[in-house]
């Protein structure tokens, strides 16, 4: 897939796809601007540098997870185990050692292994992604509770906490990490052969198979990426919170699916973008912050979130039918 390919007959089609994606992105940006503007009008406490920084730092873990989730959704998958991976990785790797780089190395390796297991079940054992990752989720839950006997603990090293809460020239480290990962993932999806194969597989597994690409490995790789993303997110989240908990990341499996879908991914596969996913994650986290800032009942954000999920999916559905 080189420069000549971009001038191939398929180009108009791809351009319309790109145009639609751009419109969807603008819609998300517009929505975010509107809810931010309304909140700013209602409360002076919202649009302050400190609060915006809070929102961004809080959005970072979900940002990592949704990138992985979105890539799995592109290959017609679904990863229900991400929250369980977050907690398991956080619990195991922080309890083994207190040297920050080693914690991260062990954590990422664990995430990759669990992702590979998911991918193996889906691609080689032909287990439905929903069930494979549901089973992994439950098994991991059992393993980490049994390992910690229900009560994880232990102090986190200083450098570890700094990574999640500190900043470099005023920019939070977690955000810098997310930005690097996001750019890499975006480049991979839009520019690399691997990314195009992922989308091709999502559009038509048979077509991807015909190219001679190792399609099973492709699916395994998608789950590995999701596992690694969840591992990073879990480590940043416990670093931010300061406490390792057996339920770290609870709810992220459904939030990340919601964010991916709001961000334009289709469960039927083949569709999804990094900017869309991240914007959607930012919207979800903003909603939570807004509800708190406005002094509304926290439960209200659940109602808004649910409505938003259905509305977004409905809008995309209608558009793809036209």
């Amino acid at each position: 897939m080189t420069a000549t390919d971009t001038n191939a007959p398929a180009t108009p089609n791809r351009n319309t796809v790109r145009a639609t994606e751009r419109r969807e992105l603008l819609l998300l940006v517009g929505f975010l601007v509107v809810i931010w503007a309304v909140t700013t009008a209602l409360s002076p406490r919202f649009l302050t540098p400190a609060n915006l920084k809070d929102i961004l730092i809080q959005a970072a873990p979900l940002g990592f997870v949704v990138i992985g989730q979105m890539i799995v959704i592109i290959v017609r998958g679904l990863d229900l185990s991400v929250a369980s991976i977050m907690a398991t990785v956080a619990v195991l790797s922080t309890s083994l050692i207190d040297v920050t780089p080693v914690i991260f190395a062990v954590g990422l390796l664990l995430g990759a292994l669990i992702g590979a297991l998911n991918g193996y079940l889906v691609a080689y054992r032909k287990v439905t992604p929903f069930l494979a990752t549901l089973a992994t989720m439950i098994v991991l839950q059992g393993i980490r509770f049994a390992y910690t006997k229900g009560a994880p603990g232990g102090a986190l090293p200083e450098t570890f906490r700094w990574l999640a809460t500190g900043d470099i020239f005023g920019i939070p480290v977690a955000l810098i990490a997310l930005a690097i990962v996001a750019f890499a993932a975006h480049w991979m999806l839009e520019r690399s052969v691997f990314g195009r194969l992922l989308k091709l597989y999502g559009d038509s597994p048979d077509a991807a198979y015909m190219t001679g690409a190792p399609t099973r490995l492709l699916v395994v790789m998608a789950f590995v990426i999701s596992g690694v993303m969840a591992a990073i997110a879990g480590l940043f989240l416990v670093g931010y919170v300061g406490i390792v908990d057996n339920w770290t990341g609870r709810g992220y499996e459904l939030d990340s699916i919601a964010a991916a879908v709001i961000g334009g991914a289709a469960l039927s596969g083949g569709k999804g973008s990094v900017p869309g996913s991240l914007l959607a994650a930012l919207i979800l986290v903003s909603l939570f912050n807004i509800v708190v800032i406005l002094g509304l009942s926290i439960e209200l954000q659940l109602v808004i979130k649910g409505t938003l999920i259905i509305l977004a999916a409905a809008v995309y559905m209608k558009r793809s039918q036209n």
Binding site: A258, L300, Q301, L302, V303, G306, T307, I309, I310, A313
Partner: peptide
């Protein structure tokens, strides 16, 4: 999956 996830979230909040 998305529909019922959405309604479930709304109802949990309600």
């Amino acid at each position: 999956l998305i529909t019922t996830l959405g309604t479930s979230t709304i109802l949990a909040g309600a």
